[in-house]
Structures are given as C-alpha cells and as structure tokens.
Write a protein that binds this DNA or RNA. Structure first.
Length: 582
RNA sequence: CGGGGUGUAGCGCAGCUGGCUAGCGCACCUGCUUUGGGAGCAGGGGGUCGCCGGUUCGAAUCCGGCCACCCCGACCA
C-alpha cells in the first residue's frame, strides 16, 4: 500500500477526550474516530488490526473444531423472555421496537439465538457435541463507556457456544476452548493470565477469565505466588492474615473472651470505621461494619456484616443470596429500618435479616453502631449479642492475605484487562429453552452447554496498553497492520524513490504486508508517523546510505538499526520477522 | 443514576469581570526555497462561539432550561 493512496489521518496532538495509552494512540495513529460515546468508526489501519486478530481467533476456533456461523444482531424479545433475561438483563440491553411495535434487542450476547438454532435442528446424540461460533458486532448499553475500544458500547466479539450430550463432554469442550484461548492470546503477542471468575449475568457453574496484565486494566487479578491459584477480585477467596496475630483482636479489657457485657458509648459525629477506631482507640479489626443492602430493586432489605478492616464484595453477596441486583440502601431507608443514620448501625437488636462474613464467627468484645445516632456499642460478642442468619464469604480479598488454596502464599494484586471469558453453563439455557436430544437408549435428555467469548477490539487495545512507548504504538508482529514500512526520505530524488519502489515490490512479492511512505514530506515527519503507527520493521532509504548501496533497517520494538546492502534487504527482513514472531 | 468538569475552525487552546470585523498554534490550499527526527518565507480558505429561551441599544461573554462529551463509582468481551 502506498501512503499517498491510503487514509491514515495521524495527529500530533492528543485529543482531549482520551487518557489511556491505547485510546490516545488509536486516535492519534488514525485507527479510530468516535461517533458517539462508546461507538467508533474503524478506519483502514484500525480495521487491518482487527482483521488480523479475527483471523488468529478464527484459525484457533476452527482448529478446536468449532464451526463459524453468523447470527443476527437484532433479536426478537420472545427468545430473551424464554430464559427470563428480557427482565433480568437490565438497562444494558438496548431494546428497540420495529414498525409493528414488536420488541427486539440489539444482541449483547447470543446464548438464546444459538440455542434456538440448535434445538430446532439437533435431535440425536449422534449430532453432538457441536460447537458453533461467530465473530460479530455486539451492543451493550454500558453505564459508562470509556477508554476507547477498551470499553465501547458497540464492539466486536467472537462468541462460541458448545452443545454437549453430558457433563463429561462439556468438561472436555471447556478444556479444549481453554487451550484454544491460550493459543489465541499467545499468538496475539500478549502477556496474560487465566483466572477464576464470577459468572455475572451470563450464569453457569464455573468460569475463567483471560486477563491481559496492564496497569490501566479495570479489573483486579489476585494470584498466589506459591500455588497456581489466580482469580478475579470479584471472586477471590482468602484466609485471614490477622489470624496469625490474634493479639490485635484480644478483648479490650484483656479479660476472658466475651466476658464484658455490651455497653453503649457516646461517639458524636464519628461515623466511619477510621473515625470511630481513632476515637475509641480500638483497631479496625475489632469493629463490625454493618451495612444495609437493598436487593432486587427494593424487594428485600438486609444487613451485611464484615469486619471493620474489610470491604464488602457485592459480587459475592449477589451470588450467595441469589439476587439479580444488590445496592446499598438509601440513607432514608437505613434510618427507617434501623432508627439510626448510616454510620451508627450495628447488629445488636436489629430487626432484619443479618448476613455475616465468616471472619466474624465467634468474634468477642467487638464494637459496632448502637442503632442510635451518636452512639456505638462495645463489648459485642457474636452468638450472645447478635446472631447472623446466614454466614457467607462477603469480603474482598486484600493484597497480602493468605491464599485460601494453599494457605501459605500471600496474595499478589495486579491490574488486568479482560479479553476472554469461558463459562461452563450447565443446562441453564438448554433447560429454559428446551434444547434436548435423544440418547442412545432413546431417552430424551437436556443438552449441556458452554459459552466462550473473546473481545476482538479489546485484544487490539490491550496489545497497545502492553506495548507502546513515548513515540507511539509498538505492535506485536502478528497483529500489526503492516509488517514493514518503507521510508524514502526524499521522494524528490529519483534514485531514492526508485529504490524504495524496488524494495516495495520485492518485499510485497515475498509475502510481507508493506506500506510505502511515498508522501512528499520531510524525513522527521515520516519517522515520527512511522513510530506512532508502530509498524514493526522500518526500511529507511536515505541519500547517505544509498551512495554505498545500502539502506537502513530499524526494528521498532528494540530501536536496533542495521545498515544492509540492497540485495540483502529481503533476507534481513525475513530474519528480523522470524525473530519477532518467535 | 450519584458526584466533578468541559463545550469557541479538523485537532489543541485563548477570549468570557458586558463593547468594534472572534483570535493563537498545529493541520489544510497556492507559490518559491528546503529535505536523516513533526522546515522557512509569502499569500489564502475555513466559525449559525453545543442548542433553545431570557436580560440588554448591543451577548461567545450575564441569567434560565436542555443536550452532548469527559473524569470518579456500580456493569462487562
């Protein structure tokens, strides 16, 4: 491709709307343009990257035995009603009416549509297992789209659906997809980690997320340095690190456990744990944090207790309680239910369901709100002064906590970008939609499903987050829009222009994707654009070198430069490319 | 949705405490010179100042409403 015939509107200045590296650089390199919040045009250069990623994904899916399809993006509401997700999915689901007033949604994911297809066509165990996938534009009306392609509302996704005769086959399919995913992210040139994950509103029994490790990631990856445990913070379990040092939770009076009786003490205007902790001179881990939660838009209210030094994990709460949504109750509601303002609520004498975190089991001589403004209660003991109705893991793991699996390692925290997610769905969708088949004994059985997603655009964005410098993008070779860019430094000099043209034909003929910067621009301008756009190999055709029959080859990633005789260009590029691919 | 902020040329910004024909840098067009890290000179094009309404002789500027976008939280590939 010749630059003069191409369309790469690069920009020197950073658009004010962007902050993260991938967003800024995709805009500056002329890959994308915004149309609306979370909705983007893909320009030629951006599309080339997306296609590269798609092809890697497609290749690995096909190798894993999955078959490509293409489903509609507009889905009739009836299908979503069958599984109940029309009600449950919430505002993220973009709903549209057609001219007849029929309800549709723009598909955010396609379990229903694919299951509908399969239930209509598959009757026999002989047709199973079957894994179908598509690469298609999805729409999720995100609460807050941001970071460009990283969290767009409209985005490209590969979604695959496995249909299996039984759990064993489903487990096998899951393992196969898991392996395919590892290949995909490795081939895309990403540093990643597979972690255990919450199943969110897709549902199912277990799942793993594939996280690209990057400081700008929106997720927190928790991992144990001593064993293989790795999880999304949403789901991460940990053991108490305070348990090692029980002195810090000894009773205040240093008397026998639970000996003292509960007493209300005045704590004027001291609401947060930090404030009260400082005021009463008691460490935060001796406090019981009491929060009032509202479930399913007000269907139920309950109190959630965690130790003062912990944070409530709403994902765990939602899963443990089987709720569709959980949110903190409003201040008014808290006062109505407890008689006190937020900050003075405690478990003693509370007239509502109480859910408590395991760490509070058997806690003695703790402090919490007195359900009376301006007062806290001390010397509270679990079992005597309050009795939780349900015990669950309700807290966030913290960096440095002990690993729940091996009990030895101290958990590390990293930021990550979720680029893939695999789920074992069980029969959640197949049962609801009656996707069944006849087994070898002629008995009707429900299919067991899996669902597997890859964010195509996110892979591109994540690659930039992981691989860029001051000057611009540094594409992994496998997903770069072009492999080589040729820079004749002065096209007004016929010998430079002709040499560049010759190299262009030679390399193109050898199977490389080559961009020829034949613009009548100054050298510095071209260098900067080439660095910004991030093409892995630059061939610089300048006057000085050419006098000796040489050109310069620069590797974008390492900034290594080689002076090479004209006839040696092809082999040298091949050598560098092989090095970049391995 | 809650909290904070911004809307002036394609991009980045100034002007905004009421006053002339709305300005600067980059980008763009023409010509000449220049050509190894975003060139110089000369000339030029491009704006319903986010939208609607109000105050005023006069509004980018003051007031009200709306909209869009960005940042911080809940959502997710």
């Amino acid at each position: 491709m010749r630059m003069t015939k191409y369309f790469v509107p690069t920009a020197r200045e950073t658009p004010s709307e962007a902050e993260t590296a991938s967003h800024v650089l995709m805009l500056r390199a002329g890959m994308i343009r915004k149309v609306a919040a979370g909705v983007y045009d893909l320009l030629p250069l951006g599309l080339r990257v997306i296609r590269r990623v798609e092809n890697i994904v497609r290749d690995e899916m096909n190798r894993a035995g999955a078959l490509e399809t293409l489903l509609p993006s507009m889905i009739p509401a009836e299908l979503w009603m069958e599984t109940g997700r029309w009600q449950k999915y919430g505002k993220e689901l973009l709903r549209i009416k057609d001219r007849h007033g029929h309800d549709f949604c723009y598909g955010p994911t396609h379990e229903e549509v694919m299951t509908d297809l399969v239930r209509g066509e598959v009757r026999s165990y002989k047709q199973l297992p079957l894994v179908l996938y598509q690469i298609q534009t999805k729409f999720r009306d995100e609460i807050r789209p941001r970071f460009g392609m990283m969290r767009a509302r409209e985005f490209m996704m590969k979604d695959a659906y496995g249909f299996h005769p039984d759990e064993a086959s489903a487990a096998e399919g899951y393992a196969r997809m898991f392996a395919a995913y590892e290949n995909i992210f490795r081939r895309s040139g990403l540093k990643f980690r597979a972690v255990e994950a919450d199943t969110g509103n897709i549902g199912g029994s277990s799942s793993h997320e594939f996280m690209v490790l990057a400081d700008t990631g929106e997720d927190t990856v928790v991992s144990c340095p001593d064993c293989s445990y790795a999880s999304n913070l949403e789901k991460a379990e940990s053991k108490d690190r305070v348990a090692e040092n029980p002195a810090s939770i000894l009773p205040l009076e240093r008397g026998g456990a639970g000996g003292a009786s509960p007493t209300d003490v005045e704590t004027p205007n001291q609401k947060t744990i930090e404030e009260v902790s400082a005021f009463l001179k008691m460490p935060p881990e001796r406090f019981i944090k009491t929060l009032v939660y509202c479930l399913d838009e007000g269907k139920e209210h309950l109190a959630v207790l965690v130790r003062g030094d912990c944070e409530v994990n709403e994902h765990k709460l939602k899963t443990a309680l089987g709720a569709d949504s959980v949110e903190l109750a409003s201040f008014e509601k808290v006062r109505e239910l407890t008689g006190a303002g937020a900050g003075f609520v405690g478990p003693r004498g509370l007239k509502m369901k109480i859910v408590a975190d395991h760490l509070l089991r058997g806690i003695t001589n703790a402090a919490s709100g007195a359900n009376k403004d301006g007062f806290h209660t001390i010397n509270l003991s679990e079992g005597r002064d309050f009795k939780p109705d349900v015990w669950i893991d309700a807290r966030n793991a913290r960096a440095g906590d002990l690993c729940a699996r091996c009990g030895k390692g101290r958990l590390d925290f990293h930021r990550g970008i979720e680029v893939g997610h695999v789920f074992r769905l069980g029969t959640k969708y197949s049962k609801a939609m009656n996707a069944s088949y006849l087994d070898a004994d002629g008995k009707e059985r429900t299919m067991v499903m899996g669902t597997y997603g890859v964010g195509i655009g996110r892979i591109a964005a994540a690659a930039i987050e992981q691989s860029h410098d001051q000057a611009g993008i540094v594409w992994p070779y496998s997903i770069a829009p072009f492999h080589v860019v040729i820079l004749p430094l002065n096209v007004a000099k016929p010998d430079l222009a002709q040499t560049a043209e010759r190299i262009y034909s030679e390399l193109s003929g050898a199977g490389f994707d080559v961009l020829l910067d034949d613009r009548d621009e100054r050298a510095g301008f071209k260098f900067n654009d080439a660095d910004l756009v991030g093409i892995p190999i630059q061939v610089i055709v300048g006057e000085k070198g050419l006098k000796n029959g040489e050109v310069e080859i620069k590797v974008r990633k390492t900034a290594a430069r080689f002076s090479v005789k004209l006839e040696g260009v092809g082999p040298k590029i091949r050598e560098i490319a092989d090095g970049l691919l391995s």
